[in-house]
Design a binder for these strands. Structure first.
Length: 804
RNA sequence: GCCGGGAUGGCGAAACUGGCAAACGCACGGGACUUAAAAUCCCGCGGCCGCAAGGCCUUGUGGGUUCAAUUCCCUCUCCCGGCACCA
């Protein structure tokens, strides 16, 4: 008998849909559980990555439902974005038509996998009922000064023809198309995420159930570094040059200072100096170098002397001011103090340009008072201060604090913190996104669109030529409008929002997807949120997860939510590989989930993908593995053929059954689907061993345990076992600890830590009796006979270790 | 360089708080059933020595703690990821 997956899967999918089995109802009396998987971009086809992500979430949410939780498990589409525009250009269609078609396709494919979504809560970010609230949120941020426009040097992807946020630049390339990113000076809209940097960093500590690496990545990205800003006064003009350092303990060793070539003071201080010409030449040369070239490590550090001197405020020494390409304007103050003896970069530069050096930290164990001339590299480690005035003799870590405090008191420095995180650039010069709800009036300036006028709808038509420039700017009916304040002719903003804006709060919308008085109902969000379990790819470790945390903190400030963090637990699932590589069109190694569903059924695919590896590690695709999963389901299916025996099931089967319930339950709690399934396999193997007895209970249990993983299969078997109602109403099986207790236990007998034999004894055996049995054991004789026992370790019910 | 993660049979992996290393599956070998094949069911399956009983070795490297280490501590190597001329 072979399991007819096709009919079975279609049958149950139809029943689930008709009976709205997965519809979540707001009910504060019940305990809720919110399981969410990152919603997909509707490309039209689901890939194995989606299958893995959504199977994990589905299995877990079905399990939680069976445990009696009121489960929210919604799905939607991150539907704005560039591929729709590209498709429009390529296929001569419109982005919204293309997108909606893709959504339909994808819904069908998701349906075929048997995922238990509440489709009544579906949201699509390109729907104006959704993006209206993007605009509303933007206006709120604008009111609070968190959304602002400024001209600056921004990342530009020449292929996508749009600006990018810092977070979207990966290895100097565009996150979407990998094209090398260029720098451009443009006026753009930013969100002041930096206002939340401290909370974003500190609250990472709350996220106990997030993967370590995601926490680490966000921490790195936010990049807090504590140090001191020191004021150097120019010798001839009294102008102050602030520099930032994290090594204030080395300040007495500063023998020159260096400005970035772009530093605003440079032009002023070199003016009229004999060095001016050389300096200008150098600055010009550096300005032509790309960021990538300039920051590559093997490039020699170059620089020129400015002709100026300044004063080291701690010891009044006069030191020269240089310009060099290894100092970056974007970080710190764009100027550094150079301590060649204790910073490797400064060391190399000083050697190259014959600049003076002074040791101020004594290397422990090293020759005391070593001359800088003998140094081969800078000493960056800890040690004791020397040549540092009143701080001599202090360990440098202590000196760091003392010097900083002293400098603050003297007014020559200030303790300061620098951050890597920059404000979030959200303007995109693209059509298929949320219009930024702002109007430019020649009289009134930048005017936000009044709330009552939302949504600012995207025009249905726009010219998609692929020739660059924002398509919206070419739609005159859209662009030309009246100023909301003075009614005179005005222009609309034609940039749209980055799509990461859309996805920064969709999890809140799911709580009340049709709410009309705001982005979400505070009452319903208050019940469902935060997301209890979030599941998605590691590629969003910074981007989406950081932005969502930022939005949540903003909503909290507005009093719209009561929590700090949107996602309580996070699981980042591993990628699905084929032949050791990521599946991709360009590699031509894609396995289409649909073909697997056709040949083996969705349940086989689900079981396979959960069984092959733990969810968070990458897994290698294996056709053999699929066959194994298929074989396993059929093996379970054949249990239906079993002739009903009246023979009492043996003790070991009952025990295995309860053990399986226990293990599967524990494994599910910690997302160890692979071992959960292996435990069910063991149970099935045991049932086969005892198939001459009455196995009804054991089979029932097997089907219940397998139901979160292979839901159609389980429903069908459940029905054939004589049950009328859906298995998902049956409740999660319970185990009895009592039945798991062994009356006879196998104990391991070790001699000097080495396994020598095993004995079976009653579980509650007294130590004295145990010793007696052990020491009279024939097999042990050769090992212990005639040797004095030095120690005897007894671990009850487990082992005895005889030390001789 | 800093931060985070990892390394276990031919392969994917398992081992709870330190207590039988390799569960479960894949691949492979053998047997049963069959005219035959497929499917299925049963058995074997880390390495070395041995007819066997059994013994010795084995969780990237070297060391330590412990009666006992895949697990804890230190050293090193390699792999993956993030940040980085970041001052």
């Amino acid at each position: 008998m072979i399991y007819g997956f096709k009919e079975v899967e279609e049958k149950w999918q139809k029943i689930w849909t008709e009976q709205k089995v997965f519809h979540a109802i707001h009910d504060p009396k019940r305990r809720k559980y919110y399981v969410l998987e990152m919603f997909p971009y509707p490309s039209g086809k689901i890939h194995m990555g989606h299958v893995r992500n959504y199977t994990i979430g589905d299995a877990y949410s079905r399990y939680k439902r069976m445990q009696g939780y009121n489960v929210l498990h919604p799905m939607g589409f991150d539907a704005f974005g560039q591929p729709a525009e590209n498709a429009a250009i390529k296929n001569k269609t419109k982005p919204d038509i293309w997108t909606h078609k893709c959504i339909e396709w994808m819904k069908k494919e998701l349906g075929r996998m048997g995922f238990s979504y509440d489709w009544e809560r579906e949201v699509s970010t390109c729907d104006h009922n959704y993006y209206k609230w993007n605009q509303w949120i933007f206006l709120k941020m604008f009111e609070k000064g968190l959304a602002y426009k400024k001209g600056s040097n921004v990342n530009w992807c020449p292929s996508c023809e749009t600006t990018l946020a810092n977070e979207e630049v990966i290895d100097e390339g565009c996150w979407r198309c990998h094209t090398k990113v260029e720098q451009k000076d443009l006026e753009q809209w930013f969100l002041k995420i930096t206002d939340y940097k401290e909370k974003l960093l500190d609250d990472l500590r709350q996220l106990k159930d997030w993967p370590q690496r995601v926490i680490a990545m966000q921490g790195n990205w936010i990049g807090k570094s504590q140090g001191v800003e020191i004021y150097f006064r120019l010798k001839e003009s009294d102008k102050i040059i602030p520099v930032f350092t994290t090594r204030v303990d080395t300040i007495f060793g500063a023998t020159y200072i260096v400005l970035a070539p772009e530093h605003p003071l440079v032009a002023e201080i070199i003016k009229g100096k004999p060095e001016e010409k050389e300096a200008l030449k150098f600055i010009h040369k550096v300005s032509k170098e790309s960021k990538a070239v300039r920051s590559s490590e093997d490039v020699k550090k170059e620089g020129v002397f400015t002709g100026c001197y300044c004063v080291n405020p701690v010891n009044s020494e006069t030191i020269p001011v240089w310009i060099a390409d290894y100092v970056l304007m974007e970080y710190g103050t764009g100027a550094i103090m150079a301590v060649p003896t204790h910073d490797q970069r400064d060391f190399l530069f000083a050697k190259e340009h014959n600049l003076p050096m002074k040791i101020v930290i004594n290397q422990p164990g090293g020759p005391p008072g070593q001359a800088p001339d003998n140094m081969r590299e800078a000493y960056e480690g800890d040690g004791v201060q020397i040549n540092s005035g009143q701080f001599d003799g202090l360990p440098n870590q202590q000196a760091k604090l003392k010097i900083a405090e002293w400098m603050e008191k003297e007014g020559i420095g200030r303790i300061q913190t620098h951050w890597r995180l920059r404000d979030w650039l959200i303007s995109r010069q693209r059509y298929w996104g949320t219009p930024i709800p702002v109007i430019y009036c020649s009289k009134c300036g930048v005017v936000p669109v009044p709330y009552a006028d939302l949504p600012v709808k995207l025009p249905k038509e726009a010219p998609f030529t692929g020739e660059g420039g924002s398509p919206l700017s070419k739609v005159s009916e859209f662009v030309n409008t009246a100023c909301p304040k003075c009614k005179s002719p005005a222009r609309r903003e034609t940039d749209t929002m980055a799509t990461f804006f859309d996805s920064s709060w969709y999890f809140l919308r799911f709580s009340s997807p049709k709410f009309e008085a705001g982005p979400f109902s505070m009452e319903e969000a208050g019940y469902w949120m935060p997301v209890d379990q979030y599941i998605g790819g590691i590629e969003h470790a910074i981007l989406h997860l950081l932005y969502s945390r930022f939005f949540t903190k903003f909503f909290k400030e507005l009093g719209m939510v009561a929590f700090d963090e949107p996602f309580k637990k996070l699981l980042t699932q591993g990628m699905v590989l084929k032949d050791g590589e990521v599946m991709s069109k360009s590699r031509g190694n894609i396995v289409d989930p649909d073909s697997i569903i056709k040949n083996y059924g969705a349940d086989t695919l689900r079981i396979y993908i959960l069984f092959a590896a733990p969810p968070e590690v990458e897994m290698e695709w294996s056709e053999r593995g699929i066959e194994g999963a298929y074989r396993f389901l059929n093996r379970v299916w054949r249990l239906l053929e079993n002739k009903r025996s009246k023979k009492e099931p043996p003790e070991k089967l009952k025990k295995k059954m309860h053990q399986a319930i226990k293990e599967v339950t524990l494994d599910l709690e910690s997302f160890k689907f692979n071992t959960a399934i292996s435990e069910i396999m063991e149970l099935v193997n045991e049932i086969y061993q005892d198939s001459d007895a009455d196995i009804t209970e054991a089979v029932k249990t097997t089907v219940l345990l397998i139901s979160p993983f292979a839901p159609h299969f389980a429903e069908e078997m459940w029905q054939r076992l004589g049950n009328k109602d859906s298995i998902f109403k049956a409740g999660w099986p319970k185990y009895e600890e009592r039945l798991l207790e062994e009356s006879v236990v196998t104990m391991i007998i070790q001699v000097n830590g080495k396994l020598r034999c095993k004995i079976e004894v009653p579980a509650g055996i007294a130590e004295e009796n145990l010793k007696e049995i052990v020491f009279s054991d024939e097999k042990l004789k050769p090992w212990i006979e005639g040797k004095p026992v030095k120690n005897l370790v007894i671990v009850p019910k487990k082992l005895v270790n005889i030390v001789i």
